[in-house]
């Protein structure tokens, strides 16, 4: 195993990311968005990389977190910790329901079911505009405040999200290292055998869904507070797709790969969109390149770089962890 895949290395890389982003980025908003998507993508990776489930439903949970924050903060001014906890619980509950129905089928049919649910929830949100604000979304979602001062400046909210990110990432590392996480790997490898040696595999998949849904909704709530809106687009199918693309670009064999994936996508989108309005086309090319030449994603590249630098006793430069 590559030393970078060890749990403490993963955690250290996550901490490093949190500390390094402010040094390189001018925009606190962009840096915060990267961290939010990093945890959401890592949660998607728990399903794709660890359990072997390609879920198109991640946008549902993200959107639900967004609406929980939007509704609770604009209408009832619920305390933020409660909002975040509520988002996670509702995210987990929804993911359990979606998962419970979807894992009855395997392969393509499973994917199609999650896709169908994603459309379903979008139209529910669109239709019940009294609750969700429909096309306009919910405007005026306030930032949280700590010690009486609202975190209105981008970098103060970044700090808040950074703490959440590190905590969530540590939690996900713990999950993947646990006997539960290792059973998920077994289910991904050979579900029939996992069942034959006594594991109720559906229950394990369901729990993976619940954890993934909780983290994704948590991230959705943070996102609503970041941009001050709970938009309909957060529950759109497009968000599911975005999260999946980031997961695949980053590489599904390690949790930190997801952080790379989210960072790479958002930074590239930010850079390209100022250069050319049709930047999505270029992004398509990037995705094709990853699919053809980098099947282990950016993380695979990092691992190879690390091997080059350290295993062949070359000058001990910093490992190639930049995008």
């Amino acid at each position: 195993m590559n030393p970078l895949d060890k749990p403490y290395a993963q955690l250290a890389l996550a901490l490093l990311t949190v500390l390094v982003l402010p040094l390189f980025l001018k925009s606190g908003i962009l840096a915060t968005e990267i961290l939010i998507f990093a945890m959401v993508v890592a949660a998607c990776n728990l399903l794709l990389g660890y359990t072997g489930l390609l879920s198109f439903g991640q946008g549902i949970f993200f959107g639900i977190g967004t609406y929980v924050a939007g509704i609770c903060l604009t209408r009832w001014s619920v305390p933020v910790p409660l909002v975040l906890a509520g988002a996670a619980v509702l995210g987990a509950a929804t993911a359990t329901l979606v998962g419970w129905l979807s894992i009855r089928r395997q392969g393509v049919y499973f994917v199609m079911l999650t896709l169908a649910f994603s459309q379903l929830f979008y139209f529910v949100a669109y239709t019940f505009s009294g609750v969700t604000g429909g096309d306009n979304g919910l405007l005026g979602v306030p930032r949280p405040s700590v010690g009486g001062t609202a975190l209105n400046s981008p970098w103060s909210y970044y700090t808040f999200v950074a703490v959440c990110f590190v905590a969530v990432f540590a939690l996900l590392v713990m999950v993947t290292q646990s006997t539960f996480g290792r059973t998920l790997l077994a289910i991904r490898e050979n579900e029939g055998r996992a069942a034959a040696i006594g594991f109720p595999t559906k229950l394990f998949k369901l729990e993976a869904f619940a954890i993934s849904g909780a983290v994704t909704a948590f991230g959705g709530a943070l996102h609503a507070m970041l941009i001050g809106v709970a938009p309909l687009s957060n529950i759109e199918y497009h968000t599911s797709e975005l999260i999946l693309i980031m997961t695949i670009i980053g590489g599904s064999s390690s949790l930190f790969g997801s952080v790379l994936g989210a960072g790479f996508y958002l930074l590239l989108a930010d850079a390209l969109s100022t250069v050319w309005p049709r930047w999505l086309l270029l992004l398509g090319l990037v995705l094709v390149t990853v699919a053809l030449f980098l099947q282990r994603g950016l993380w695979g590249l990092v691992e190879r770089g690390y091997d080059l630098v350290f295993r062949r006793e070359r000058a001990p430069e910093t490992p190639a962890e930049e995008h």
């Binding site: 006997t179 290792r182 790997l185 490898e189 040696i197 594991f199 229950l203 729990e207």
Partner: peptide
């Protein structure tokens, strides 16, 4: 088998399979 897991991990999983509820604790 679980081809991408170590031999010992294969057997550990098989031994854990008798008490699978334990393994649900993340």
């Amino acid at each position: 088998l679980f081809p991408n897991l170590a031999l010992r991990e294969n057997l550990r999983l098989a031994a854990q399979g008798r008490t699978p509820w334990q393994a649900l604790a993340p």
